[in-house]
């Protein structure tokens, strides 16, 4: 019983998070400006971390936790670096 409930919830959560990643990817492709793309990339990172945690619950293994932590770390560093880069204005807008 509980396995069925949890299985359905995990499946629904995975579908929703995949759709969320799709939306973020859409914004990443559309832009229109560089800051929109960086924001979309940041959202993509967060959604990926959430998806990994759901994978962890599905497989019953805590190893996915480390992966989620690393994705969150990388997402922060990448976004901060890209934002800094935008601020200095060395990216020429097309």
């Amino acid at each position: 019983m509980s396995a069925a409930i949890l299985g359905a919830a995990v499946f629904a959560a995975q579908v929703m998070l995949a759709a969320a990643m799709g939306c973020a990817a859409l914004r990443l492709a559309w832009g229109p400006r560089a800051q929109d793309r960086v924001l979309a990339l940041d959202t993509l990172y967060v959604n990926a971390a959430m998806l990994l945690l759901v994978f962890g619950i599905r497989s019953g293994s805590t190893h996915y936790f480390e992966a989620a932590l690393i994705i969150a770390l990388l997402g922060f560093v990448a976004t901060a670096a890209l934002a800094k880069f935008l601020m200095r204005g060395e990216v020429i807008e097309q």
Binding site: I5, L6, A9, Q14, M16, L17, A20, A24, T43, M50
Partner: peptide
């Protein structure tokens, strides 16, 4: 656990839709 999972994923989805 199921309720929290669905609520969290739904918020993630709504945020990305807003994007």
């Amino acid at each position: 656990v199921a309720a929290l999972l669905i609520a969290g994923a739904a918020l993630g989805l709504i945020g990305s839709i807003g994007l």
